[in-house]
Simulated scan of single mutants.
Amino acid sequence: MIDLHAHTTASDGTWSPEQLVEESQRLRLEAVGIADHDTLDGFLAAQLHALQLGVDLVCGIEISTRHLRKGHPPVPHVHLLGYFLDGPARAGFHYWLNRIREDRNRRNREMVEKLRSLGLAVTIEEVEELGGNITGRPHFAKLLVEKGYVSSLAEAFKRYIGENAPAYAPRHAPSTAEAIEQVRAGGGLAVLAHPARLVKNDFGMLEEILEELSAQGLDGIEVFHSEHSAEEQKLLLGIAQSRGLLVSGGSDFHGDRKADVNLGTGINFNLNIPIQVLEDLRRAARHRAPTEP
């Protein structure tokens, strides 16, 4: 059994990279993939510990993007998993990631200034204490609730930080096509994360999106996920096979933040991902040489 989608304190998980490795060993997982949001730091921090404990650690990342469609509105919150970006000659990919983080930080500072201009006493340090390395609007909302400026997260978005609210500042998320290009240029595999969530189980729309993303170089889809029912997994597996896409899978473990999701086994033991999934991915990755300068 493997798990190729887990988060650590390097992004929005509550377990340290070392804790995740130790739990993987305790559970006797055949492999575990750290796929933190917009950073490889969790994987890098866990490498030595995994080697010492004999845990097969897979390099992953989950990149927040938006899919631009001709003749249709953009599809927001498209999460792209990138695998095997831990080899040499990945400098261009790391530079691209730094640009994404810098833009996130710019947006957060701008929102703090807007909130302060509205008379709300908030600081960037307070927000980052809640959000860590991937501070975003949910952490702003939580802070506004804690300080008594609003009574709920929904009110925070409606009055202050929603897209039409006075303290909103846009974040320039990369397009999905750009992220696919960057992952592939770095020698990695690009996999669409939790596709059923993305389309709210509208599999007709998913087929359209996959048609477009496949033309842009998408390598695979996350068939096995804690939120996917057995029926959805079967349907997604058929879609992947019919399109010649690779199959991936993972729990999307976040530690205490998603207490019902267990490492390796998902929700109520709905996952049992075979090692063959990783072997197929690795076989494909061996034929993917980095193309970045």
Rank of each mutant, 00 (worst) to 15 (best):
Q47W: 09
P290Q: 05
A285M: 06
V145P: 05
L53G: 04
E22F: 03
E22A: 08
E163T: 12
V122W: 01
D38N: 11
L153D: 12
R69D: 01
R288A: 13
L115V: 04
L20H: 04
G71F: 04
V112D: 02
G60D: 00
L192R: 01
R197C: 05
R159Q: 11
H172E: 14
T291M: 02
G249L: 10
R109L: 10
R159T: 02
L68T: 02
L51S: 12
A154L: 13
S151I: 05
T65S: 09
F84D: 04
Y83D: 01
Y95C: 15
H7G: 08
K70I: 09
G250P: 03
N98E: 15
R66K: 14
K200Q: 15
V55G: 02
A289V: 09
T65N: 06
E232D: 13
W96K: 02
A50I: 03
R184H: 13
A167S: 13
R104I: 05
R106W: 14
N105H: 15
P76D: 12
S175F: 07
N201D: 14
A289L: 12
L118P: 01
G250L: 01
L80A: 01
Q233E: 13
A169G: 08
A45K: 09
L245S: 06
L189I: 12
I124L: 13
T135W: 06
E113Y: 08
A177F: 07
P166I: 12
L68D: 05
Q25C: 10
G131Q: 14
L144E: 03
T291C: 05
V277A: 01
A173M: 10
L118Q: 07
S229L: 12
N262V: 06
W15Y: 13
G42W: 00
H72L: 11
H287Y: 12
G162C: 06
S151L: 09
I34V: 07
S251G: 09
P293L: 02
L85E: 00
E279G: 00
Q241W: 06
P88A: 12
P74H: 09
G187F: 00
I180V: 08
A35I: 02
L245V: 08
S226K: 05
R257T: 09
H37K: 08
G162N: 04
N164V: 06
A50K: 03
A173Y: 11
H94T: 09
T14G: 08
A167F: 08
